[in-house]
């Protein structure tokens, strides 16, 4: 297992994702002899996981069962331990495409946070690219570096514990893309420019507030960035369900000659109709942040 390469079988030392049910998953560090407690009972790593195929059904001690999934950056995003607010897959997917990431890309990122985006970047730039990620919070920087190693992507990433606004990314003229998720991105725009290749590249800044976007756009324009394009993407989830709609009873139809237009073949006058449809969740994320993209021209 690695976050950038599929394996077929679960091995000692892997990170696996246990699927307990819809929207309910947990990551597990697979260790010979270890056990993991779930609401369906205990999973014994040596017998239940190691050597099993990813995707297998595992029966827990209480008789309930779960599926064990191969980790992906997307599964990691929904199961990782939150040390900060994180970026979710909808924004991550947009960032990946709009920054034009692909195998071989060199990317700078700050802040690393809980590493949700970082894993997705690493997946996309592997095996020949590199991620330079800067996190000012020491505890977090250390923790995320440890996770990268566990996820076998450590060779693709350099974690720096510094203040990007003061000290930049620690590299110059090497990046194809820069991503900013910091409270004052406009203070780091100059460093972003410096980190990007002389031939140009793409930059993205994520900010929840429009004032941050305004200042960042100003800084980007001032630094000569082009195609400055702020946007927002929201995910809508459609819950599939079967609903039953009762039919109204308008009383006996006196004029039997002309059947009313509401008479339905095969359904009694006084019944209901089942219907496959989707419903919106009662509440949904109304805003995560604005994504401001721009292009650094050749300099």
């Amino acid at each position: 297992m690695s976050f950038v390469e599929y394996s077929d079988f679960i091995q000692d030392g892997d990170v696996a994702v246990v699927y307990l049910g819809h929207d309910s998953m947990m990551p597990v560090k697979v260790q010979q002899g270890a056990q993991t407690q779930t609401r369906y009972g205990v999973i014994r790593h040596s017998t239940d996981l190691i050597g099993q195929r990813y995707g297998s059904k595992v029966t827990c001690s209480k008789g309930g069962w779960v599926h064990v999934l191969h980790p992906t950056p997307e599964l990691w995003t929904v199961t990782l331990p939150h040390r900060t607010q994180i970026l979710y897959t909808t924004d991550i997917a947009t960032i990946t495409m709009m920054l034009e990431l692909k195998p071989g890309s060199v990317v700078c990122e700050s802040g690393t946070g809980s590493g949700s985006l970082s894993h997705a970047i690493l997946r996309t730039v592997a095996p020949t690219g590199h991620l330079h990620t800067v996190e000012f919070h020491q505890q977090r920087a250390e923790k995320v570096a440890e996770e990268f190693k566990e996820h076998r992507v450590g060779h693709l990433v350099t974690v720096r514990n510094q203040d990007v606004c003061k000290d930049g990314f620690g590299v110059t003229g090497v990046a194809d893309a820069v991503f900013l998720d910091i409270p004052s991105p406009w203070e780091a725009v100059g460093h972003a420019k410096a980190a990007l290749k002389r031939q140009g590249g793409r930059v993205c800044s994520f900010s929840p507030c429009i004032e941050q976007v305004q200042k960042t756009c100003e800084a980007l324009a001032h630094q000569g960035f082009e195609e400055i394009s702020p946007l927002e993407v929201l995910l809508r989830v459609h819950d599939v369900r079967t609903v039953s709609l009762p039919l109204p009873d308008f009383g006996p139809d006196a004029s039997s000659a002309q059947t009313p237009p509401d008479a339905r073949e095969g359904t009694p006058r006084y019944g209901s109709v089942a219907l496959k449809t989707t419903t919106a969740p009662r509440e949904m994320p109304g805003h995560t942040g604005y994504l401001t993209f721009a292009t650094k021209p050749r300099t």
Partner: peptide, 18 residues
């Protein structure tokens, strides 16, 4: 719906699904 506050203006983080 929006929150409009000095330097903290953004759409509310939760919205009705439909």
């Amino acid at each position: 719906h929006y929150q409009v506050l000095p330097n903290r203006t953004h759409p509310l983080l939760l919205m009705s699904g439909g």
